[in-house]
């Protein structure tokens, strides 16, 4: 197989509050022999909040990020569900609306760039599953997670809205019955836990303005996983991770029940199975301790 090579859009969180996510992404890429060209010129995607304020500006900024991936002639890989949403949404809107694309390109021309629409935007989860291949990962597992029940937490923005699926995943994910993360858990030798909240929202985006709502959603998700005998949760989204890992106190208070589970980033889970060390995967950066490794 030809060596896989991507333009990596890290997003801001991986560089700040979830350093372990950046470390484990690179560790897994090394193990799988995937080359990552980091888009150091990229700006924040706006996290769907800048979008609430200034729609056009957020389109221009995201188009600029994609244009840099296009310059490399590479598919852009994201490692955050919300980065994926905003970047893929920009691409979706520009690709189907020539007038809007022209307006955006008029602005990009000022800095000598052009958005063409030639690069795909996919989340690392689907890069691993669709481009690299689950079977090949299965073959490479040296330390299967066979002793663990692992609860997948998909996070909204990878599975919804499904209008973005065609462009961003080859394996079409069913938003009501998603399977990618379950399949990955099984490939890593673990047992996947089925529970109602696996495709629900963690509330991250209203944490500041509606803290109670956010805390109830987080608490309910952890409780659902716990009640179905999960030893840990796993998520492809650093924002979900922040919520599930660092906010267990407010979540417990909101639902009137003590809840707390170790939460792995999807990359950390794969990394463990492939034999990376806990230090390489940054396990010490979790607030809820990953005490079983």
């Amino acid at each position: 197989m030809k060596k896989l090579k991507y333009a990596l859009f890290t997003g801001c969180t991986a560089k700040q509050s979830t350093p372990e996510q950046m470390m484990s992404t690179m560790a897994v890429a090394r193990k799988l022999g995937i080359e990552m060209i980091e888009l150091t010129e990229a700006s924040c995607c706006g996290a769907s909040h800048l979008q609430d304020y200034d729609d056009f500006l957020s389109l221009v900024l995201n188009a600029r990020n994609i244009a840099y991936a296009e310059k490399h002639g590479l598919t852009m890989v994201t490692i955050c569900n919300t980065c994926q949403l905003n970047t893929a949404m920009t691409k979706h809107r520009l690709d189907k609306n020539a007038e809007l694309k022209a307006k955006v390109n008029e602005k990009l021309a000022e800095i000598g760039l052009e958005y063409k629409g030639t690069s795909n935007v996919i989340h690392f989860l689907y890069a691993i599953i669709d481009d690299f291949g689950l079977d090949k990962i299965k073959e490479m597992v040296v330390k299967p997670l066979s002793q663990f029940n692992i609860a997948p937490f998909y996070g909204c923005h990878n599975i919804r809205p499904s209008e973005l699926h065609d462009e961003s995943h080859k394996q079409k994910e069913n938003p009501y019955n998603p399977t990618s993360l379950d399949d990955l858990i099984i490939a890593c030798g673990g047992k996947n836990v089925d529970y109602e909240e696996k495709n629900k929202c963690c509330g991250f985006h209203v944490e500041l303005q509606a803290p109670h709502t956010a805390a109830v959603l987080t608490g309910t998700a952890i409780a659902g996983a716990t009640d179905n005998n999960a030893d840990m949760m796993v998520t492809p989204c650093p924002l979900c991770h922040l919520k599930l890992d660092t906010q267990t106190k407010s979540a417990s208070e909101a639902i009137g029940r003590e809840v707390s589970l170790p939460v792995l980033h999807m990359q950390q889970m794969v990394g463990l199975a492939l034999g990376c060390t806990p230090a390489e995967l940054g396990l010490k950066h979790h607030v809820t301790e990953v005490n079983f490794i």
């Binding site: 909204c156 919804r160 499904s162 929202c201 985006h205 209203v206 303005q209 509606a210």
Partner: peptide, 10 residues
């Protein structure tokens, strides 16, 4: 207070 979960769109 919308959590941006996209359930409604779906």
């Amino acid at each position: 207070d919308c959590a941006k979960c996209y359930e409604c769109a779906e």
